[in-house]
Computed example of a mutant assay.
Amino acid sequence: MSQPPPAAHHAGHVAVIGRPNVGKSTLVNALVGANVSIVSNRPQTTRHRLLGIASVPGGQLVLVDTPGLHREGGRLASSALNRVLNRAARGALEGVDAAALVVEAGRWDEEDALAYDTLRASGLPVVLVVNQVDRVADKASLLPYLQRINEGREFAALHPVSALKRTGLDALVASLLAQLPEQPPLYGEDEITDRSQRFLAGELVREQLMRQLGAELPYATTVEIESFTEEPSPKAGVMYRIGAVIWVEREGQKAIVIGKGGTRLRDIGKRARERMEQLFDAKVFLQTWVRVREGWSDDESALRSLGYGDS
């Protein structure tokens, strides 16, 4: 008796696009099954292009997590940092096979329209992901909302989901795979990101800055990993010794990050170290410093030296 042909395997790159703070990184983490992208309640948490690799039955999604697209104008939006972030978001469309446009359930504003127009101009198939449906108390209001944003626009598929609660994701995965070419996996099944542990360490420190400081966090704050070495550990097998510099633009910002008696900086370092040990599955010794570099967020050469604009 002849065997049925094997099921087709689909693999390719999907750009995850949307305005700031709609849950793009939470969605990528949920699909990958690991926290490869940092998340917080602050807009523009994601500042670098990052690949999250989701290997699933029948295919592999290589998800390109990007900074949120926003309109130019205003002091922050016109800074060199924000110009770099917008270029990174738009650059994510190069060489991808499809796009997921992520919006917040019940909301569609000019920045959502900007993201949609950018995607349609690219000619990519666009899957609309309506995220955070768990926050909508009146579920009956979703249908007219979906009809309104679908009118006059072309989507390959439309999926209401909750990335946080991980609901609606199976159907979304099936729709995304359908947009991808038939080909073998692009990465090994055990790979979850293209970024190095050194890069992820810096992001985990920055994540804790955003979570611990909240509204107090100076916008012009970034993290540079100054040293990253590996050494044997009698108990854990391996230990990473990491030195992280937190850059701000003014002395007053430095005081905010350090906190009274250094308590805030110690707490940031402790929580970041715990997250690193969980992700790296190794012992971590982390040292942190706060330093001042005036005007770095509006200096493109300084941004390049700090890793902004790197693919």
Results as ranks from 00 to 15, higher is better:
R211M: 04
V173C: 05
K260R: 15
G269I: 13
V257W: 08
I268Y: 03
S233Q: 09
I149C: 06
R273V: 02
T221Y: 10
S233E: 13
E251S: 09
D170V: 06
R271C: 02
R241S: 07
P234K: 06
R166H: 03
M276A: 02
T222M: 10
K165C: 06
D190Q: 14
E249W: 07
E277V: 05
E230A: 15
K283A: 12
I225R: 04
Y219I: 09
R266V: 08
E216S: 10
A201E: 10
S233F: 14
E182Y: 04
E231T: 13
E154A: 11
A255N: 11
Q212C: 05
E151Y: 02
T263C: 00
R266Y: 09
G237V: 12
A174M: 03
S175N: 04
R166C: 00
I225Q: 07
A201K: 04
P218F: 13
K235W: 03
I192N: 03
G259M: 13
V173P: 01
R206Q: 08
K165G: 01
R153Q: 07
K260Y: 11
S227M: 05
E274V: 01
Q147E: 12
T193L: 12
G188C: 00
L164T: 06
I192C: 07
I268H: 02
W247D: 01
P232Q: 06
V245Q: 09
V257N: 02
M210W: 02
A244H: 09
V257Y: 10
Q278E: 15
E154Q: 13
E230Y: 03
G214K: 10
L164D: 07
A272C: 08
G202H: 03
L200Q: 14
V223R: 03
Q208G: 08
I246M: 10
I258P: 03
M239H: 05
I246R: 05
G259V: 12
E231W: 09
K270C: 02
R195L: 10
V248L: 08
D194A: 13
G252Q: 09
V223Y: 06
G252N: 12
E249M: 07
Q147D: 14
A163R: 04
G261E: 12
F228P: 10
P234I: 01
G237E: 11
P232V: 09
K165M: 14
G262F: 14
H159S: 00
V161L: 05
A163E: 03
G152R: 02
E224L: 14
T221D: 05
V245I: 11
S175C: 00
D170K: 10
Q253F: 04
K165L: 09
E274Y: 07
L186G: 05
P232N: 09
R198S: 00
L279A: 11
L180H: 04
T167W: 06
A215C: 01
R195G: 00
E226Q: 15
S233K: 05
Y240N: 05
Q208S: 04
K165P: 00
R264E: 07
P185T: 02
R273M: 05
L176E: 08
V161I: 15
E207C: 11
R275Q: 11
R195A: 06
G202Y: 11
H159C: 11
H159E: 03
E154P: 00
K270S: 15
R166Q: 14
